[in-house]
Amino acid sequence: MRYAAPTTVDEAVGLLAADADARVFAGATDLIPQIRSGRPEPSVLVDLKRIDRLVGVGESGGTWTVGAATPTSTLTADEAFTGAFPGLSEASGLIGSDQIQNRSSWGGNLCNASPAADSVPALVANAVRAVVAGSNGERTVPVEEIVTGPGQTSLADDEFVVEFQVDTPPAHTADAYLRLIPRTEMDIAVVGAAVRLTMDGGTCTAATVALGAVAPTVVRVPDAEAALVGSTLDDATLEAVAAAASAACNPIDDKRGTIEYRRQVAGVLAKRAATIAAERANA
């Protein structure tokens, strides 16, 4: 296993194109445990953190750009970013301990393609786009098109995510992310729920609901979104949101939770996240 620390995107693409077993990494917070547990080692480890473009967060002309290897602690510490995307910020802040937060990144969290990745439901709820670089140049795709299944992405061998783009939310729009873990910290989500709402005088005018850890990939819940739009988030609406979220799940039984548990709690978290997002949007 050889380590390489390219300083440009082209250099990194070149390393990937030259060796099919090369692998990019940012925090390695998943990669190192995977290698320790016996996954085959990549031939070349391509460290993306020395490429300037991959580290940083900023807003310009109504679009936020987040480098794919930016430590999530940078995002949670950025007051302007957190003000614009409170749910996305809190989801980013839930990826592991403070130690992990200084290593983990959206790029890694997304491309590791774990169904339980905390940032991904919030990325989807905010319609975040990924800018992907490869031998054929760059392309921009919605994040939900990156992950195709557990551990599987649509990226070619010579491609990696360079940065993320997300539009500044319209007025009275806010997001929220909740997850269920057995402890208070240091766990992988058993269920995650991201909700983004636009409110107009107490009535919801736009809604996105995305669930994590309840299916092979992040699940959008159109029935919950439909129930929210036009509502004032009264109890009946919230129960409808919960029912729709539970119905949208396609979970598995594993060491972290049962099918029944994930279904039930997905509904609980969806309705709670919707309530928080509405409060934020109304504020």
Binding site: P33, P182, R183, T184, E185, M186, D187, I188, D254, K255, R256
Partner: peptide
């Protein structure tokens, strides 16, 4: 054993 690590063998952390 399915949870042979401190991630999924869940001992209390300080915030618990």
């Amino acid at each position: 054993m399915q949870n042979a690590g401190f991630l999924d063998y869940r001992m209390p952390v300080a915030s618990d």
